[in-house]
Amino acid sequence: MAAYLLHLAILAGIYIILAVSLNLIIGYAGQVSLGHAAFYGIGAYASALAALHWHFPFPLAALGAMLVTGGCGLALGLPTLRLKEDYLAIVTLGFGVIVDLVFLNLEVTGGPDGLVGIPSPRLLGLSFRPQPLYLLLVILAVFLVLGFTYLLVRSYHGRALRAIRDHETTAQVMGINTPAYKIVIFSLAAALAGLAGSLYAHYITFINPESFGLHTSILILCMVVLGGMGSIIGSVLGAIALAVLPEMLRQFQAYQDLIYGALLVALLIWRPEGLLGRGKLSLKFLTRG
């Protein structure tokens, strides 16, 4: 039982990183990514391959994974972030499909079977295989990510980002380089998703394409919307809620996606500021009228 709770806590921590990073894209760049799981997956595969093939120690593998995913985010964001928000949603969705196909078709990624035997992190001779230690590692990562995000959104740049989200043209007139901001935030968020992937791969120790499909992207999106778009603390709560709830409602598993879909629509109609967050950054209020 304790092991199971620890397992849930570790997953919740990974989801927090994913949700917070997606919220950066949604709440601060005003864009939707439906390929967040693809970045998560690329991070997981990149980190696992670095450790398996080149015997990178965990910190280096994780860093490498972040660089790779951040680079992918940059490559994807450059052509699309100048355009309307709908384009990015579909392009990232398409990107997710392509990445899925790549994982399935490439030899180094092990095809549908994926990769096994990914080493657990070792630091200073200490193995992080035991769950409590791994949880500590995840908590450390979560705090780093949250601290970084907090500083970012509080900074001058964070204010610029909010200006972009709410009034893109005005922001542009004020001399804020909106495309550059969006691209940077998008690849940063991709890099954070890569970190989450790395944490996941070295915890679970075997990965296959199934964990990184559209389903996961949508789960992350639900976490963000549930917690409130633009609310960092909301994303944390949303991630915990959706990581834990399904486990508690096992008998409803078949209905999970049905509920998520209905939840998204219903929340946006009745409580666009999200259920859990304080909602002071609701997109809806800020752009009406």
Partner: peptide, 12 residues
């Protein structure tokens, strides 16, 4: 509403 809102609702 902000264009993101109907977009996400349609995804839902």
């Amino acid at each position: 509403a902000h264009p993101l809102v109907p977009l996400i609702s349609a995804i839902g």
